[in-house]
């Protein structure tokens, strides 16, 4: 026997769920329909004059590289911060720190962009020069060092700062849910605090860390303004992280070139947007898959 209230609630919840799917399908349909003219167009008419895959490839590369740098830097840092808040810091301090990190997540990306451009870029000149001098034999640091500092490395670090709060917040929530019994059992067996964390907290929180990292990755992949104003990007593929020539990212390229584009150039940009959409979809599916595989003994479901 269902009350009317139950039925209304069930229907509206179902409606909300369906609405999400409709919106997503609508976005996908828009991207596909708008991208088709670029996909079927004569390659000579496209910006760059080559086929669409050649046009998009450098931007895909730039998107992936900048996000990868961000993730490599931010994930370990976020885990450390989350562990400190949940297991090391005094309770008062932990609470304050938690608020602060949530606050950091609310800073608009353009502010991070300006900060990266005005503060971080010049500040990292020294590091870039050092990397080039001593590690120049690695293609990543081959140089020549950019004098303005508007490089892929700086973008990666800026993105890392931007996604740090998300990964930290998710990891912290999961670490807090570690069963107290596990922790106490580990301590009772003579484990040190670090051993206890390794034995009980980290395994329990692993899928939470992964989903946090994937959320962060999603933000890094789609980040537009910060990349557009910091990065000295162009349509090239290069592993060099510290020189003037960098691979631009998909989102930044769209933002920079959309305003003055017409005709099939617009369709080309939308086609690159479709590629980004597919990449983020793949990343999220992969994350889901990893989390589901480790469903047992985990705090994230």
């Amino acid at each position: 026997m269902q009350q009317p209230g139950d039925r209304i609630f069930a229907a509206s919840a179902r409606g909300a769920g369906i609405l999400i799917l409709v919106v997503l399908a609508g976005v996908a349909a828009f991207l596909v329909i708008q991208a088709i003219p670029a996909l079927v167009a004569n390659p000579a008419d496209l910006p760059g004059g080559k086929n669409i895959a050649v046009y998009v490839a450098p931007f895909v590369f730039g998107t992936v590289v900048s996000s990868a740098i961000a993730l490599i830097i931010a994930t370990p840092l976020a885990i450390a911060v989350a562990l400190f808040i949940t297991h090391y810091a005094p309770r008062r301090l932990a609470q304050g720190l938690g608020y602060l990190i949530d606050l950091l997540a609310a800073v608009p990306s353009i502010v991070f962009g300006l900060w990266g451009l005005a503060v971080l870029a010049p500040a990292m000149l020294g590091l870039s020069t050092w990397l080039n001098t001593y590690l120049g034999w690695i293609p990543l640091f081959a140089g020549p060092v950019s004098v303005t500092g508007r490089t892929m490395l700086v973008v990666g670090v800026t993105l890392a700062v931007m996604i740090l709060p998300i990964i930290t917040a998710v990891s912290r929530e999961v670490f807090l849910q570690t069963p107290k019994l596990h922790e106490e059992a580990a301590l009772a067996l003579g484990a040190t605090r670090w051993e206890m964390i390794r034995m009980s907290v980290l395994p329990f929180g692993r899928s939470g860390i992964i989903s946090g990292a994937m959320l962060g990755l999603g933000r890094a992949l789609g980040e537009t303004m910060a990349v557009a104003i910091i990065l000295s990007g162009s349509s090239i593929i290069t592993f060099n992280l510290i020189s003037s020539g960098n691979s631009s990212s998909i989102a930044a390229n769209i933002a920079l070139n959309f305003p003055d584009s017409t005709g099939v150039a617009v369709n080309t940009l939308i086609a690159s947007g479709l590629v980004l959409f597919v990449i983020t979809l793949l990343v999220n599916s992969l994350a889901r898959y990893i989390i589901n595989r480790r469903r047992e003994f985990s705090g994230a479901n």
Binding site: R150, I229, S232, G233, S234, S235, T238, S244, G245
Partner: peptide
């Protein structure tokens, strides 16, 4: 020309 310093 690709690969030189570019700014918005």
């Amino acid at each position: 020309i690709q690969g030189s310093e570019a700014a918005q």
